[in-house]
Amino acid sequence: MITARYHREIPQRYRLEAGKCKKCGFIAFPHRLVCPKCKSQDFETIRLSDEGKILTFTIVRVASDKFSKQTPFAVGIVELKEGVKLTTQIADVDVDKLEIGQKVKIVFRKIQEDGKAGILCYGYKAVLI
């Protein structure tokens, strides 16, 4: 069962909530308790923008069981406007036409199913603009 962990991660997975250090401005995504730059514990919650660009990507042609029916699919590192980098699937695309530097929008999609009768897990993916 992945219920409790999934529930804990809802703010970052659904709303791109991050922690911004009030002392040095470092943005932690997902949220952290201690700033890795200045060791401050004083954060404010911000919502990241939903636009960015592809820094790099790979094509998954042989996937784990849960994702095997979706192959081939692209997973990339996307840099958002705030400079935050996140790893995400790049959806609705011909994987052979993807290029580094393409602009993307972060969208809300189903990420996985916890078996046939378990919960549905939602979160963010990127699509080309």
Binding site: Q89, F108, I111, Y122
Partner: peptide, 16 residues
């Protein structure tokens, strides 16, 4: 719908 789309994801996109 894409394999990762359903009534919830469609509703979220429209509602945003």
């Amino acid at each position: 719908p894409g394999q990762d789309e359903d009534t919830i994801t469609i509703s979220v996109a429209a509602a945003r």
